[in-house]
Design a protein around this nucleic acid. Sequence first.
DNA 1: ATTGGTGCAAAACTTTTGCACGGTA
DNA 2: TACCGTGCAAAAGTTTTGCACCAAT
Lengths: 169, 169
Amino acid sequence: MPKSKSHAVAAASAEVEEREEFRIFYDHIKRTGLKKTGQRDMILDVFLRTEGHVSSEDLYELVKREDPSIGFTTVYRTLKLLQECGLARNVQSYDGRMLYEHDFKHEHHDHLICTSCGTLIEFFNETIEKIQDQIADEHRFKPVTHSLRIFGLCWECQVAAEADARRHR
Amino acid sequence: MPKSKSHAVAAASAEVEEREEFRIFYDHIKRTGLKKTGQRDMILDVFLRTEGHVSSEDLYELVKREDPSIGFTTVYRTLKLLQECGLARNVQSYDGRMLYEHDFKHEHHDHLICTSCGTLIEFFNETIEKIQDQIADEHRFKPVTHSLRIFGLCWECQVAAEADARRHR
DNA sequence: ATTGGTGCAAAACTTTTGCACGGTA
DNA sequence: TACCGTGCAAAAGTTTTGCACCAAT
């Protein structure tokens, strides 16, 4: 957010971050004996400014735009840290790539995934959640997380497909 | 296809296969202008004898055991054919790998996936299915398939983890 | 000083594809 | 004969890891 000069890295790490997400991150870092670095701050900052879902590559590109010196590996590993402390969670896209999304103060939800354009639409349904716990119980299975993905076509792609079909008719 | 003695390839392809699954496969092959080959017969045969879930690599290993001359590529591509004609369907495992399972006369179901040992337990719940369609509808989303996976620990792994914890205590 | 962090390059893996040769119809 | 199928090798696309050097505590 800051950006007092040119590099956001400096901005993000120079002052002590107040946002709750950073608190959580710093706590996790301290608790596990890791270290606070400018790169990690910057990566978290960019991630938080992100809407929707990003792959590690996506996030790397965004970060690089603000500080080209940060490497992919660091983004990749930081994303893992963010998962560990509950700031990010991942979703497997329909094509197998791993995407990340915010997971702080974001109630759990599932996804409708358009296999044409890749868009992810979020939804939540209490009943489904309850039934899932019931099912796990019946199988003496200890559920940790779950992933419900409905694949198909979003409205835009349905319209586009329709138009396309008309053209070839 | 030669090799009239010890190899199952011969067994599977020498005579005309009667099983309904083969009917379906042959129909699909004929319908799309493809060709019936000993390799494909053998791969389907092995796949049908398979229980549970296999990756293309897994199936390749099984096939190789009966006919080392069959290559991975053929197994891989045949698995795609089997999907096309509805004999197989795929599930993304928790680690991103693609697994295949029987999909003929097997009503749709979802999975409980143990992240410790990889085991997949199947289940089905009518209510969840209905709610999903409702949700898609509400979003003007045209559902094609879905995947509901509950990750966690199966009973065996819970017990093992418990024992392990006791040991380190 | 220590111990962890970083970026680069390379390794590991899976999934796909290009091609030349051989088989099916 | 005309096409399709097959196996091999290599391409692609990601996710991971090893390492030498740098930075945080």
